[in-house]
Design a protein around this nucleic acid. Structure first.
Length: 556
RNA sequence: GACCCGUUGGUCAAGUGGUCAAGACGUCGCCCUCUCACGGCGGAGUCAGGGGUUCGACUCCCCUACGGGUUACCA
């Protein structure tokens, strides 16, 4: 068989020598140990937490080593293109603090290894394919879908491994004449790898290959024996081929991807070997899992919209919180480091791929929320205010007016209980924050809780009346509370909770019940931060007004 | 089915032959306390099972079970 002739027959328009690409895309000039990583999303527009998880690994690996992190769009599947997806991906990642040095950006492509859209790299792929055909390493296959199905069915009956390999590879050794004829008939064809792998026949045992995975250590797997499709009938490569060519030519040093790629690793290894290129360091990350009906399963795009990044954005999780959380599940020693370095920037943590877990991790909302509290408590009120405003503009526009309205007022509210040494950690995510502080705004103030059971309506009324009588906005906190105690004992409630605990039969309740009545009148809820402080923020007028409104006496 | 990966408390997990098997979240109790938070203290709770190897196994080997993934001209 004259493979040169075959190659020209198949790709008459490809004239470049592969070596030219080696010159166009030379070895990167980077410091020793610098890592080159990439994110290669397919533009379906949907990214979930798992993608972000992987993106952080890429980002840290590159930026921690003085390397390069670039974005490549893997748009080799025409059926899955979604309008505006690339922009959505970029802005989503940007929101969560993932930035690229190179590749596809909002303003087009940037970098010396362009193009970064796989759809624009056909000539490159075909040049290498042509070379492989010339060398007899790849061949055209004209099998139709029906023929492929037939093969699979036969294999199933015979209980042999499914796939296109060995004796099942019908078109592996087609003659030049036959190929010519089929070409003349305009039959569609794909290009397949002529795999050199061994099969599990009587006299041949499958050879094993071993690969060093950055996360998982030594991996032993059977070598590939499948004549996988390299180039689809439309001239676009499959993921397998595009990955190998791109990551070689773009000089990627570390390929970070999900564990679902593990089974196709032997294909990639054979491809790199066939092309005589060095293998990148593979890092197969654990999957982020979800619990469903008592079982865990991989996060899925279709089934888990609540795990999409958009969900966290619309709830108003702070990007720093999400990042911090992901980091704790990314690197097992991160949490420990954070406790020792509570205020250090996240980037100063030394991330290592070896400290990554290789088993699937369940997403834990409780943990995210807890971490979020710690993160938010360190963010200055002015910054939180801006964050709330930005969030409302995108997700709750009806709140924007209020939030932007009185800047000083909002900042005081957000700083409530965050000045002393015992910091309140009340804030988790934007939507929750607004609910938490909503009683400060008349439009959102409403009575949500009812008075304690041991306080009669008459008592409640008289407590509020007495409170109003004694109200002096100039009182300091001690003076204020002394008056509450006074009211409590006047009405038959213990001034100190301990007294009540000792002799519950002597009292109707204790000072806590009294302040709960006041709290409900002022905030509409039985729980809130310190009443006195809240009054100082609300101001004298609003505070009194609410007490008056709560007095049934005045409502009658 | 075949192949691959995985399995330490409810969750995330330290741990690489000798530990009373860290820590965090959650949970429960107590303390602090005008409520709620915060904080402090304490409790319950784990090496999937069975065989080896070894003086000694969470750690090494084998088998079983369970979970997950892949098995496309999708990525």
């Amino acid at each position: 068989m004259d493979y040169y002739k075959l190659a020209d027959l198949l790709f008459p328009n490809i004239t470049k020598n592969p070596l030219e690409y080696e010159e166009i895309y030379p070895q990167r000039m980077l410091p020793v140990g610098a890592k080159v990583t990439r994110l290669g999303p397919s533009p379906t527009g949907f990214i979930h937490l798992g993608n972000l998880y992987g993106a952080f690994v890429d980002e840290r690996l590159a930026h921690q080593s003085g390397g390069v992190f670039y974005l490549r769009i893997e748009d080799t599947d025409e059926k899955r293109q979604v309008e505006g997806a690339v922009e959505a991906i970029i802005s989503s990642l940007e929101f969560f603090g993932v930035t690229f040095d190179e590749g596809v950006t909002k303003d087009g492509e940037k970098g010396n290894y362009a193009p970064y859209h796989q759809s624009q790299r056909s000539e490159i792929y075909q040049t290498y394919i042509k070379q492989m055909v010339r060398r007899g390493q790849a061949y055209p296959c004209f099998c139709t879908e029906e023929e492929l199905n037939e093969i699979r069915e036969t294999q199933e009956c015979l209980k042999e491994n499914p796939g296109y390999y060995g004796k099942w590879a019908k078109h592996r050794n087609l003659s030049l004449e036959e190929i010519q004829t089929r070409l003349d008939n305009k039959e569609a064809f794909v290009i397949r790898l002529r795999s050199q792998g061994t099969h599990d026949c009587e006299d041949e045992d499958i050879k094993m290959i071993s690969v060093e995975d950055g996360i998982r250590g030594t991996l032993m797997m059977p070598e590939n024996d499948q004549d996988v499709v390299l180039l689809k009938a439309n001239g676009i490569p499959t993921y397998h081929f595009a990955h190998v060519v791109d990551d070689h030519l773009m000089r990627t040093s570390h390929v970070v991807r999900g564990a679902e790629w593990l089974p196709s690793l032997p294909i990639h290894v054979e491809l790199f070997n066939t092309l005589e290129w060095p293998l990148p360091v593979y890092c197969h990350t654990a999957q982020l899992m979800k619990m469903e009906n008592g079982n865990r399963r991989k996060l899925s795009k279709r089934k888990d919209p609540e795990l999409s990044l958009d969900y966290y954005r619309s709830e108003g999780y702070h990007p720093k919180a999400v990042r911090e959380y992901l980091m704790t599940i990314l690197n097992s020693n991160y949490e420990e480091w954070r406790m020792e370095n509570p205020n250090a920037p996240l980037d100063s943590f030394e991330f290592t791929v070896e400290k990554m877990s290789s088993s699937g991790t369940l997403f834990d909302l409780d943990k995210l929320n807890d971490i979020s509290k710690d993160v938010l408590v360190k963010i200055p009120a002015a910054e939180i205010r801006q964050f709330l405003i930005d969030w409302s503009k995108a997700h709750r526009p009806e709140l924007t007016g209020i939030l932007e309205g009185d800047e000083e007022y909002l900042i005081k509210i957000l700083d409530l209980g965050r000045n002393g040494n015992k910091l309140r950690k009340d804030f988790v995510f934007a939507r929750q924050i607004f609910e938490f502080i909503s009683y400060f705004y008349n439009d959102y103030f409403k009575i949500e809780d009812s008075y304690p059971e041991n306080v009669s309506d008459d008592d409640a009324k008289s407590i509020l009346y007495a409170y109003l009588e004694s109200y002096d906005h100039q009182d300091d906190q001690t003076q204020w509370f002394d008056k509450i105690r006074q009211i409590a004992s006047d009405k038959g409630y213990a001034a100190k909770p301990k007294d009540y605990k000792k002799n519950p039969e002597l009292y109707k309740g204790h000072v806590g019940d009294v302040s709960t009545v006041i709290r409900i009148a002022l905030m509409g809820r039985a729980t809130s931060p310190d009443i006195w402080e809240i009054q100082q923020i609300l101001g004298e007028e609003k505070s009194k007004e609410r007490i008056i409104k709560a007095l049934p006496f005045f409502n009658e």
